[in-house]
Amino acid sequence: MKGTVLGDAGLHMAAADNVVTAIEDLDAGTEIPYDGTAVELDKAVPFGHKVALVPLEPGDVIIKYGETIGEAVEPISPGEWVHTHNCESRRGRGDRDVSDGEVA
């Protein structure tokens, strides 16, 4: 795989990434070593899903593959599951243009 496996639990695909991908079904309480310390999962995270490595505020970009994959829409703590409930796309958002009054 490209990237670094942290603690046999999470795949950190690029150095700039602020999330890791679970490489197996992870239980609540699992610790993922990161940056000299560890983040602890507050809930179980299924295989293939993402876990935050750092604290994130609404509007902060979520980075995977070293690239922006979306933005946080609520505060996210390290060790929290990152998915559609707290991370949204920035692209193809006709709904946002409507609320901004930009669409004829």
Binding site: T21, A22, P46, F47, G48, H49, K50, I62, K64, Y65, E67, T68, I69, G70, V82, H83, T84, C87, E88, S89, R90, R91, G92
Partner: peptide, 14 residues
């Protein structure tokens, strides 16, 4: 999404 992909950007990058 069930498989862990959150946004179109993430899907596309893969």
């Amino acid at each position: 999404q069930s498989g862990g992909l959150t946004t179109i950007e993430e899907k596309s990058l893969g």
